[in-house]
């Protein structure tokens, strides 16, 4: 999987997860899909509705947001290509919780946030048999 993200959209993602620090933040990535290539054209931050005392290490997208954003993308000929979430005070590497809840063929962008600053952003993809993530190719460009 290859994912292209503009610096401006990356800034929106980083600003959101720096704002939710020390809790996790996240949202959806909408764009175009052509073969193995995904280009993000929109970022949609959403509310984290996991139990508030667990949000420092858990993220759950608000009910209804997946179907709303998927429907809007489908209607406009775009694709819901993936989602992003943060790992406060942890590396931008998927956890076991991430793996169990992940979907294949979906871009998983993870941002490590340390002391309120996004310090690393990496892209992951769940393999078809659900056994692990592979790191995927993230390109930052206009």
């Amino acid at each position: 999987m290859n994912l292209v993200l503009s610096p401006d959209l990356r800034h929106i993602i980083h600003a959101h997860v720096e704002g939710t620090y020390p809790n996790e933040g996240g949202g959806f990535l909408v764009g175009t899909l052509s073969g193995d290539q995904r280009v993000v054209t929109e970022v949609h931050p959403v509310q984290n509705v996991f139990a508030s005392e667990e949000q420092f290490h858990r993220f759950l997208a608000e009910d209804g947001t997946f179907q709303r954003i998927e429907d809007e993308a489908d209607t406009r000929g775009l694709t819901l290509v993936g989602y992003f979430h943060s790992h406060p005070n942890s590396p931008a590497v998927p956890s076991e919780f991430d793996r169990v809840h992940a979907w294949p063929h979906f871009a998983y962008l993870i941002v490590s946030v340390q002391n309120s600053h996004a310090v690393e952003t990496r892209l992951w993809e769940l393999v078809d048999d659900r056994s692990r993530f592979n790191e995927a190719n993230l390109t930052i460009k206009e």
Partner: peptide, 10 residues
């Protein structure tokens, strides 16, 4: 009918 995944991470 519709299948809707819960989107979660940790």
């Amino acid at each position: 009918l519709r299948i809707i995944p819960s989107i979660a991470g940790g």
